[in-house]
Design a binder for these strands. Sequence first.
RNA 1: GUGGGUAUAGUUCAGUGGCAGAACGCCAGACUGUGGCUCUGGAUGUCGUGGGUUCGACCCCCACUACCCACC
Length: 347
Amino acid sequence: MPVGTAGSVKAVPQDVLEELGAQIILGNTYHLYLRPGHELIRGMGGLHRFMSWERALLTDSGGFQVFSLSDLRKVTEDGVSFRSHLDGSSHLLTPERSIEIQIALGADIIMAFDECTEFPADRNRARESMEMTVRWAKRSKDYFEAHKNDVPWPENETGRTQALIGIVQGGMYPDLRRECAERLLELDFPGYAIGGLSVGEPREKTLEIIASTLEVLPKEKARYVMGVGYPDEIARYAVMGVDMMDCVLPTRAARHGLLFTSEGRMNIKNVRYAQDQNPPDPKCRCKVCSRYSRAYLRHLYVAGEALAGVLNTVHNLAYYLDTMRAVRHAIKLGDLSGILSGPVFMA
RNA sequence: GUGGGUAUAGUUCAGUGGCAGAACGCCAGACUGUGGCUCUGGAUGUCGUGGGUUCGACCCCCACUACCCACC
């Protein structure tokens, strides 16, 4: 799932996302609440209509921003009070408030309000954080059940509602993760996310936590690992049984000149591409690789042209989406043997 | 032609009689539920040329050269 924090997958217009085959993209509660405001978006007919995106949308609850903007916030049992990174104004985000905002935004899939446990966290801290996340999940669910039919725009009066997904925390402790998953299962969500990963832990830990948590989460429900990863990582997690993943890496790295290719990572800024007439990835069939040279992309980046971010992002998203298409195809064929043979991208 | 000024990194410029500096640019690396085209590192060089003074000169003195300004 490409990430479009502020109602935009940075640098890529919606029609191009459709051409790339993106079936779902993310929006972010925290950012859209601060600007332009969820009431405004509700008034504009919801996030789909506001941003002209007819395919699926998922909004993150704001839990991660509480983590990443940590110097601006204070966490209590009630929720999180924080200062806006835009203008310094004070706000309180609670599970109820997060769900209220996400209902107003109207994404197809919305997320429970959680606390993304920092790394490293000792066992006591991880347990406390996990227990609060479970309590917040219950509050998220309760609020959602009470208000899920408060749909503000007519075409949604079909009896269908948004899907609220619970988030597993528990730090790097497999038993805490399993306990968290079991307790969330009692709340009966339509899908479950594994959060709090890729926060600085070694990759073996990430794998271990995903594997042990997946043992508890039912295959029949959507299983979502949040915030990962490199192309080889997401292919691997998919093979392990993960259904959904999101990551800013393809888009952010693209804007910083890093391309993901069938030959590994390519820093298009490098002077060795200055006169290279080859496409970024000779094996890629995306619009960028079929039309532009490495030399041109390097020039655009060095010249600070906005088109650099656009083209690099389009390619990276194509590479990611192709990777997942190949996984889905392999699953249909029942043969995943070739999926993990691609390049390794971790630095 | 006369008078004045300037000359230090690729560029614009600081600088001190005792280890050669900044910004930008350049080169390389990073980026994992996106505040921030961001962050981290690295390389720069006959201090215009030739003499002189000095233990020691990028710095002080002389000449030359180039460029800039004013006047003629």
